[in-house]
Design a binder for these strands. Structure first.
Lengths: 150, 150
DNA sequence: CTTGATGCAAAATATTTGCATGCTC
DNA sequence: GAGCATGCAAATATTTTGCATCAAG
């Protein structure tokens, strides 16, 4: 797993390159994504930050603006969920796809080489210049299936 | 391609089964999806209906409610786009995935057997009970690439 | 000290809901 | 006639934007 110091220096480098400023809010949002494993809405992140840093003042608009910036620079990835809203996770991780459980809402990750390779081939076959791809498998996770059986 | 009469009778059957009513609005929305090939927002559908049926009065809420019903029953499928909003298309078509062009916004469909099979295997391997899956390949379509070269 | 960043509130979007009335069955 | 469906408007939910002020470089 990529370490935090690397991500932080990446953030600093990118900001410098673009003539933007390194702020405590931007650092905090990156750190929050780093320290919390999961797929969060901007609102989630807002609440985590408020809970863990009662002394710091941050606005929801900053969360939205920063997440968009992080995503654009690859430091965060987003996933659109059916019931409105995007979920964000740390970027620079190995590419992966998601299982989404319709019962508990849990999102888990998986990676499959066959699918990855085939996606590239399919894009090429159609003359489509792929920039990114995402796959979601929606259904019921193992835990919920077991729970249902009881 | 599935024919309209079949879809209409399916709609009638489903409504009857659930004790719901067959209304002109529900028929019109299904017909609109059938006759217009594409991936439409609820607002798009609302406008198409108003344009093509200036005499008929329909509310946007009915569009949302009906699309949700059609989707739940498999007569429509939806796709969440990055910039907010869902897009709907006719259901009961052969399953397929989507290319989304970031330049012109066009959504095109493709089907690949290797990917389909592998998705099922991957879900099984993870003990995940798959109900549906979707894949999006985001990038630049052939037409836009050609346009850029000129 | 210049310029971008932030917080706040208002605006813009997108979607859902309550309710009186209308239409199916 | 009973009960679901509809249109409308108001309510939510989500995201974006304008702007005065703050702070990084």
């Amino acid at each position: 797993m990529v370490d935090y110091d690397f991500m932080l220096s990446e953030l600093k480098r990118i900001l410098k390159d673009k003539g933007l400023k390194f702020t405590s809010q931007r650092e905090l949002i990156l750190k929050t994504l780093y320290e919390n494993d999961g797929h969060f809405s901007p609102e989630d992140i807002y609440m985590i930050i408020q809970r863990e840093n009662p002394d710091i003042k941050i606005g929801i608009a900053t969360i939205y603006r920063t997440l968009a910036l992080l995503e654009e620079e690859g430091l965060a990835d987003s996933l659109s969920i059916d019931n409105g809203g995007k979920r964000y996770e740390l970027g620079l991780k190995k590419h992966h796809d998601h299982f989404i459980c319709t019962e508990c809402g849990k999102i888990t990750e998986f990676y499959d080489d066959v699918i990855e390779k085939r996606q590239e081939e399919v894009a090429k076959e159609h003359g489509f210049k792929m920039k990114s791809h995402s796959m979601k498998i929606v259904g019921i996770c193992k835990e919920c299936q077991d729970k249902n059986k009881q």
